[in-house]
């Protein structure tokens, strides 16, 4: 009897230990980013490719206001409503005090400077594939943007999803930095980088499982809209049968081949991608043609 109890205690301790290790937040340390170039001009391309403004600009912001990353947009989901925080360079309400390593920990590992896990509404499961060079450049660019002293609004998330430590388990199960589609060649690899890493297209276009993890086996095969209204369409080559040229034109203007326009959140995505060089948009189009067709 005493022996059995001892086993249970030992097993429980192992369980706690495993939980502790698995859910431990990962961070990038300063030494890893010490040698990075930090070029704000290159960072602007990263900024538009990563779509930061689509979520972190104030709701309804237009044109130049989209560079003021005061946050505030709400993202309803089955787990609660997330509110995009202020990531302007304000030292108190934004990320003005962040180092390059802080930004890299946030984007690549979903870890805040104080070690807390971020919710995956912030698409670090995609940004995990970004290069440290791009993060360094992006940091330089973000620090050139206007500061805003709008306080960030807390997320509205109920039990058990409000236990941040458990997000470590979510990351362990669902977030990784492996490429999803095997491709070779400079254009396709650039397209893959833009889609799978910075552009985080899969976050909306790929279905999720019951725990909110991306179903990589159905990559870009379309999904219910996270706000519960309508569907995000499949963009695998069997479904999106537009020419590469049509796809690239759509991504820069929002016009479909029939000259209808993008709707929903894609309107914001197009406003970001319109800032990318044409070669990048063509690379995205080429990559989308190389994605496995839907099942």
């Amino acid at each position: 009897m005493y022996k059995a109890l001892r086993y249970i205690v030992i097993l429980a301790l192992i369980g706690v230990g495993v939980f502790w290790v698995v859910t431990r937040p990962a961070q990038v340390d300063a030494a890893q980013v010490a040698q990075l170039s930090t070029d704000a001009a290159r960072g602007e391309t990263v900024f538009w490719a990563a779509g930061c403004a689509a979520c972190h600009a104030a709701p309804g912001a237009e044109d130049e206001e989209r560079r003021v990353l005061s946050g505030g947009m709400a993202f309803p989901s089955p787990f609660g409503t997330f509110h995009a925080p202020n990531i302007s360079p304000d030292p108190d309400h934004g990320i003005g005090g962040w180092s390059v390593a802080d930004l890299a920990s946030a984007m690549l590992h979903g870890t805040a400077p104080d070690g807390a896990h971020y919710y995956p509404a912030f698409p670090y499961a995609s940004y995990a594939r970004a290069t440290l060079d791009d993060v360094g450049d992006l940091h330089a660019y973000l620090m050139t943007l206007p500061a805003s002293d709008t306080p960030s609004r807390p997320h509205d998330v109920g039990f058990p999803f409000n236990i941040r430590r458990s997000l470590g388990g979510w990351k362990w199960l669902f977030a990784h930095d492996d490429w999803i589609v095997p491709v070779t060649g400079e254009t396709l690899e650039r397209g893959r980088y833009l889609v799978e890493a910075l552009g985080h297209c899969g976050e909306c276009h790929t279905p999720r499982n019951a725990l909110g993890g991306l179903d990589y086996g159905r990559w870009l095969q379309g999904a219910p809209s996270p706000d519960g209204k309508g569907r995000v369409p499949a963009i695998t080559p069997d479904k999106l049968d537009w020419s590469e040229r049509d796809i690239a034109a759509y991504l820069s203007t929002g016009f479909t081949p029939e000259y209808d326009v993008a709707g929903g959140h894609m309107t914001e995505v197009v406003k970001n991608l319109a800032h990318l060089p044409e070669d990048d948009l063509s690379a995205i189009a080429a990559y989308l043609k190389a994605v496995p067709p839907g099942s």
Partner: peptide, 21 residues
């Protein structure tokens, strides 16, 4: 000039048109 035309179409459709799916 075409991007701005697309975005003014899109902004209105985003706000006021029922998505077709």
């Amino acid at each position: 000039a075409i991007g701005a035309v697309g975005s003014s179409c899109g902004d209105c459709h985003k706000a006021y048109r029922q998505p077709n799916n």
